[in-house]
Amino acid sequence: MSDVADTLRKLTIVFTEFEGRLEQTPLIRKLTRGRFELADYHAFLVQLRQQVKEGALWMSRAASNIDDQHLELRSLLMRHAVTEHRDFRLLEADYVASGGELSVIQSGEKNIGSEALSAWMYHQASQANPFGLLGAMWIIEGLGSIKAQEWGRRVKETLALPDEAVRFLLYHGENDVEHIEEFKSMLAMVLPDEAAAKRIVRTAEVTARLYALQIEEILQ
């Protein structure tokens, strides 16, 4: 049970569980039920920024721990990190365009979930050949390709914001199909390998739980 299809199946199950958990968080309930307020959006952006800012950094650290046998994967992680390491600026711009103060989002603090998620990511990235992080990428990039636009449209509609204030959510995510194709090729770089497959799925489970905790903590 360690080839690409089996692992992808387990990861899909983890993601759909995660989606169901997100749906129950107070913040997303307000969003889907049309009761979302500007303060909710701002609080959301502050936490997303923490995540996005750290994302490229733990990815870089993970890349530096990948050995010479997996150079292709190392290149890919480095490219990902380069593409994303300035994205938190987009969140800052959305925050300002929706009426927030730049200094507020820049000095925002991680909530308990964000702290836990970040600590977990760096811990994983510090291991030799941290292939488990592919599972974390599945969760976080899955959010980008599956949830971000859906949330962005709802935020824009509910708060009557212009596109410029919702750019990260609306335009950041790549489309589903490309996302899955690229991810399959990344899995194929380390699989089949039973231990790696197990680690990838477990890392996805923990990342999903901590990510949901971050969203839960936004409105407590």
């Binding site: 199946r9 387990k10 899909t12 199950i13 993601f15 759909t16 569980e17 989606e19 169901g20 749906e23 889907t32 599956i146 859906e150």
Partner: peptide
């Protein structure tokens, strides 16, 4: 219909769990 799209993904998840 917006919610239906999410529910369809949830169905797929439950189905894949049965397969798994």
């Amino acid at each position: 219909f917006e919610l239906l799209k999410r529910v369809i993904r949830a169905w797929v998840g439950v189905y894949l769990e049965k397969v798994d």
